[in-house]
Design a protein around this nucleic acid. Structure first.
Lengths: 333, 333
DNA sequence: TTGTAGGCGTTATCAT
DNA sequence: ATGATAACGCCTACAA
């Protein structure tokens, strides 16, 4: 590996001059040419560790998500990359594997790795268990979920109105018996979506039936029991609003097993988009989140913080969702 | 930030002793206790940049993939994490966004970042355009696709036999007119899968009909035209083998548009697994790749290389695929 | 504008 | 087994 010293020698200037060139300070034109030639000849690139040791900047940000195979998460990451890569930041990915313990571990791992900032989607909204990472002063931007008692920048979706629009659509199609597969009560987005559901029912003067509200974990198998429970009610709902991706997938799985046709025997509206959802017959109604945009905005806020701009803290952005309404919700007559 | 110096002072030993403790050398029991207490009190963690500067080791590996939103890629990453995280390696993700140019850029980016090793899934098998990254001596392990004229460790699937088993199954169900949506000829996996297709037809004495072989790009929209082309033949195939995920999805999309029922009007077998594929009615026949295992194995080879063990180079592993056979391929009578 | 030199936090080489 | 000290490659006063 070539060093700044080699460049200096070849260009016949001092290391200081080379360093200044590298950092964009003004130097004599003739020297610039010589240095550039030397760099080219030697294929020199500066050593990020030596530089980082001096400047306390690693040009890496940590991205901590519940699960890397989640399509929503990867779409967010794509947005983050779009902003950060052109600025030469590297992205260190950590998956918490849906575990709060791992989330805490990875968080301290990232801190110890001296990342310049962290973008994280919390596993739960109940607590961060950040082990002093936030206190250490490294900027953290939350995405998708807020965390209780946590003053942090965040980019989330307007889940209340997202859910509201879905339920409103279902109501407008003539349904009165609307079930909801809600998520764990300690998860922020789940709370909000439930709120949107209730608010819509209220606004349209539909009485809330506690039996129609069931809870499911947001994990691989979540939603199976919940769906069965709803369908085995004495007076089952005619439409179901499923509030996240796995619960929706699993609800559909059970429907197939039971021979129920979507949009005919039972109406369904889900949350989060997958191309495949639009390939069913009928395609599935869903609330779509602007995942890529979440990543972009989070990265931009983080950049600001990393540059030392701490204005308007904590900055909380709420992005609007979009509703795709299809025949998967039957028009009642 | 606390340093090794602070620890030494508090523990009343020299920095050398602290460093030795940190690196697992034997030190006097009494000193060990004092040092541990000091580390605990000061919340000391060693600075990775300073350490890296001395040791030339960053404890990060780069993972370069064609696209981060690809489920196959993220499953591979999960496998990589499983091995590398417990050993305290960080994973820097780079997406080439299906572009060879970007792939080359990110590759040099990773090199300049001084990652200890790279696991990459090449965008194309035609060329690596590695800009001297390989020559620089940093270990690179290829996954999923081999690259022409490239002597590198690799973990790939046995695509020939994967495709063979699919086509064989189709034949055994009584089909004679079998179309294939193949990938770009310069992609290694596409070549292999086509070979498997041809070999199966040969082995079962079915004449190869050039019209039944169509090519589609491996991208977001690939497969749409290909499928249409196959179906508009004078004597269209009764079954189609679609050789990757997007082409399969898109083929299904067109089928829905045209009102064709899978497993009835036309038989279909795809490649790569998604939970949703198993939720269609009937579920989709697919060749499943052991994606997580690919990640695990690649990480293990990389570890070996990073430790300086260069035995049996280049080491090329071929993992077996698994066939899921369903009613999506009709049994002919 | 430039050269010189000290120091960032480690590890590793000497002696002891 | 330990302490002192010279690197590692870079940035940045400071002086010129």
């Amino acid at each position: 590996m070539k060093t700044i010293k080699d460049v200096a020698k070849l260009a016949d200037v001092s290391v200081g001059t080379v360093s200044r060139y590298l950092n964009g300070y003004k130097i004599k034109e003739a020297n610039r040419k010589k240095i550039e030639a030397a760099i080219e000849r030697l294929q020199f690139t500066s050593n990020p560790m030596a530089r980082g040791l001096r400047t306390n900047k690693t040009f890496t940000v940590g991205v901590l998500i519940p699960r890397i195979t989640d399509i929503f998460c990867t779409q967010v990451i794509e947005g983050i990359e779009e902003i950060l890569n052109p600025l030469n930041y590297g992205i260190v990915i950590c998956s918490a594997n849906d575990s709060l313990t791992q989330q805490a571990e990875k968080l301290t791992y990232l801190k110890n790795k001296c990342v310049d900032g962290i973008i994280m989607m919390p596993v739960t909204s109940a607590t961060l268990e950040d082990e002093g990472v936030v206190a250490s002063g490294i900027p953290v931007v939350l995405i998708d979920r807020l965390v209780k008692d946590c003053e942090l920048d965040a980019v989330v979706c307007d889940n209340v109105n997202g859910a509201y629009s879905a339920v409103e659509m279902i109501i407008n199609k003539g349904h009165q018996k609307i079930g909801i597969i809600s998520g764990p009560q300690e998860i922020y987005t789940a709370q909000e979506r439930l709120t949107g559901y209730m608010r819509a029912l209220n606004d349209y003067n539909i009485e809330i039936n506690e039996e129609y509200i069931v809870y499911a974990p947001y994990n691989q198998t979540g939603g199976i029991d919940a769906f069965r429970q709803l369908m085995s009610l004495e007076d089952p709902p005619t439409a179901i609003f499923s509030t996240n991706y796995p619960t929706t997938v699993n609800a559909m799985k059970v429907m197939l097993e039971q021979g129920l046709q979507i949009g005919k025997d039972i109406s369904l509206c889900g949350y989060d988009q997958t191309e495949l959802f639009q390939m069913f017959n009928p395609p599935l109604s869903v609330v779509v989140q602007p995942s890529r945009e979440i990543g972009i905005n989070a990265a931009e806020i983080l950049l600001k913080r990393m540059e030392g701009d701490h204005s308007r803290f904590p900055q909380i952005q709420r992005l609007k969702t979009q509703l795709i309404a299809t025949e998967s919700v039957k028009t009642m007559d």
